[in-house]
């Protein structure tokens, strides 16, 4: 594939209540093989996908939250969380999973994947993207 596009995956749905979050994550994992420039955005209820300590054992549903921590291995390094969405929900970054990726250019130093950005900064990221994925 000759062209590289800037993919923006926009996640605005909470997990478990509907399947959108999980099936969106499946697209991200499959899409990683296409070696595009991938960014994930978590806005509105999408934030809830990243909350740590999810335990679905009482639901007989698959807990897919550990999969987010594998994103670094799929070369998904840019995960942006909208500050306003966090604050509206009484959350801080400490409530979210700690996601990292290994920088092979720096002796596999572990780096944070998640960055909290304002809505205005997120809008700039959207504007800079080539393709928006919506679920």
């Amino acid at each position: 594939m000759s062209t590289t596009k800037k993919f923006m995956y926009v996640n605005r749905k909470a997990p478990y209540g509907t399947i959108y979050a999980w099936e969106a994550l499946e697209v991200v994992l499959i899409g990683a093989a296409f070696e595009q420039d991938v960014t994930l955005a978590f806005v509105d209820d999408g934030i809830y996908q990243l909350i740590g300590g999810q335990d679905t054992s009482g639901l007989e549903m698959k807990n897919f939250s550990p999969t987010y921590s594998a994103l670094g291995d799929y070369d998904v390094k840019k995960i942006y969380v909208e500050k306003e969405s966090l604050e509206e929900r009484g959350l801080s970054i400490d409530d979210l999973q700690h996601l990292t990726w290994e920088d092979e250019d720096e002796d596999y130093a572990e780096k944070d994947s998640i960055q909290v950005v304002t809505r205005a900064e997120m809008a700039d990221l959207f504007a800079d993207s080539d393709v928006m994925f919506n679920f």
């Binding site: 926009v10 959207f126 080539d130 393709v131 928006m132 919506n134 679920f135």
Partner: peptide, 8 residues
Amino acid sequence: KDKVQSWL
């Protein structure tokens, strides 16, 4: 427009 964003 250059791209489409559906606010689902």
